[in-house]
């Protein structure tokens, strides 16, 4: 168990290192291929109105003229031990974990991201609870009543669900349930109230995004669960369980569902990690001030340090979530540890 744990941890660290290299290359190597010079890139730090000499000086001072590998090392070092930045108006210290300063607001990126995290986490956790319950329950019932009216209806809805983009269903639900509805209730989903402030308002405002997001995921999970259940319920050990006289309920839940759920858990780990790293589409549709909205606003404003910060945070969540899932497997299923 300990060796397995260590091996998985090393794997996770290597993964994060690779992601950091890719992230760095996207922002510092790809633009060079596309024809930007180091001075062009430094200009963004000092503002577009800066003169050519100022940009040249800034490029030197911020180290854009150094080899890419040195720049990468400096960026990684800043994340672990912090860094001192000099934009020309004196030295500012950015303590670890330092993802640099925003081009626009000149504020460090990390505290900003921490502020946004609760919004994304609230959205992701609430939606995950709904979609897991709804999706798995629908899938199991569909599989058990294969070919019935319920099965066909549920699978048609699920197929429609996986074919719908959230930015369409989100807009439609906003129009139907908040802006244009006959009851004129205040628009839920367009504001965020922190949980500590008022849990009831928090939940009310998030209800629409939760349901919209959960519907799309539930559709996919229902299809997966149904397929998994159909496969496991046809296995020999299910027949054995029935033959030894176990009640049907226990056959379905303890033997069938348990085996069918393992692949679902893997996918759930990835999906949930991805959502924590920014539910970009949902947050943009419902104007929620979460990590994803932060990222997309930063990209449109060309504010690179913010974008890099979000990418690394998102990658961290995905890697962390899949690590947790793997460790859970090792606890539940002894075969995993040996392979």
């Amino acid at each position: 168990m300990v060796t397995y744990l260590i091996r998985r941890l090393i794997g996770a660290v290597v993964m994060l290192a690779v992601v950091s290299m890719v992230t760095f290359s996207i922002f510092f190597v790809v633009p060079r291929w596309a024809g930007a010079t180091p001075v062009d890139m430094a200009t963004r730090y000092v503002g577009r109105t800066a003169s050519a000499e100022m940009a040249q000086v800034a490029a030197q001072r911020l180290g854009f003229l150094d080899p890419v590998i040195v720049q990468y090392g400096r960026w990684v070092k800043a994340i672990f031990v912090g860094a001192d930045y000099d934009y020309g108006a004196g030295v500012e210290h950015c303590s670890a974990p330092c993802f640099g300063y925003s081009f626009l607001s000149r504020l460090p990126v990390w505290p900003d991201m921490l502020d946004r995290l609760p919004v994304t986490a609230s959205l992701a956790i609430g939606a995950a609870v709904i979609w897991l319950i709804a999706g798995v329950a629908t899938g199991v019932l569909s599989a058990l009543k294969r070919g019935s009216f319920f099965d066909r209806a549920a699978m048609s809805v699920a197929l429609a669900g996986v074919s719908l983009p959230i930015f369409f269903t989100g807009l439609v639900s906003l129009v139907v349930f908040s802006y244009g509805n006959p009851f004129r209730v205040t628009a839920p989903g367009s504001t965020y109230t922190p949980f500590e402030q008022n849990p009831a308002t928090w939940a009310y405002n998030l209800l629409l995004p939760w349901i919209t997001l959960a519907f799309l995921y539930a559709a996919g999970y229902a299809r997966l669960t149904r397929a998994g259940m159909l496969e496991t319920m046809g296995e020999d050990y299910i027949r054995t369980a029935r033959a030894k006289g176990l009640p049907e309920r226990s056959v379905v839940v303890r033997h069938g569902l348990r085996a069918a759920l393992t692949p679902i858990i893997t996918i759930f780990g990835l999906d949930f990690g991805l959502l924590l790293g920014g539910a970009v589409l949902t947050e943009s549709t419902f104007s929620l001030p979460g990590i994803g909205k932060y990222a997309i606003d930063a990209i449109i404003a060309n504010d690179l340090p913010k974008v890099m910060g979000v990418t690394m945070l998102a990658a961290f969540f995905v890697v962390f979530a899949s690590l947790i899932v793997d460790l859970l497997y090792a606890v539940v299923d002894p075969r995993v540890r040996l392979s």
């Binding site: 992601v19 890719v22 996207i26 024809g35 930007a36 920014g278 994803g292 990222a295 990658a315 995905v318």
Partner: peptide, 25 residues
């Protein structure tokens, strides 16, 4: 493949689509 599957794809794709200048390649 594992690395690619674990990437926050949408964020990456957005970032990549965003940093390319209007004239390139």
């Amino acid at each position: 493949m594992d690395v690619f599957l674990a990437f926050p794809l949408l964020v990456f794709a957005i970032a990549l689509a965003g940093v390319i200048p209007d004239k390139a390649f």
